[in-house]
Amino acid sequence: MRRYRCHKIAKGKAKGEIVISKDPLCFYLVDPKDGQVIEKNHDLEGKSIANKIIVFPGGKGSSVVQADGLYQLQQENNAPIGMIIKYPDTVLVATSIIMNIPLVDKVDEDFYSIIEDDDVIEINADESIISID
């Protein structure tokens, strides 16, 4: 098992498959019914983020849409279970704290060079550790 240090933003633990996005993500442009990204030309267009750990640069979009989008995904049990980002912004940070979704940043570059979609990883934000089976 490989372990990587990270920096806790929103507390909690999650284990599951990852989905990697090159583009920043706006949760409002994700269909709550199946967790599929509907934003045109997005790196994840047509892919589902439901119950996955998302690895992405950070959030984008207006000040309400992240919370509105994630809340609806949670109501349908299609929200992501964890998030790993590079660039924290207040909107995404506040949203993940309020929605109780573990969020971390400052992960070693090594981590990014070995991960692939669907790898199973575990985030332990409370101890600032990410582990890969």
């Binding site: 000040s63 919370a67 207040t90």
Partner: peptide
């Protein structure tokens, strides 16, 4: 918060706000 408001007051008035979410505001 509000995506047109935050840049306007920061940039045009030189007031100081972070990019707040509705909830953090």
């Amino acid at each position: 918060s509000e995506s047109s408001a935050t840049p306007y007051i920061n940039s045009i008035y030189g007031a100081r706000t972070n990019r707040e979410s509705a909830q953090s505001a």
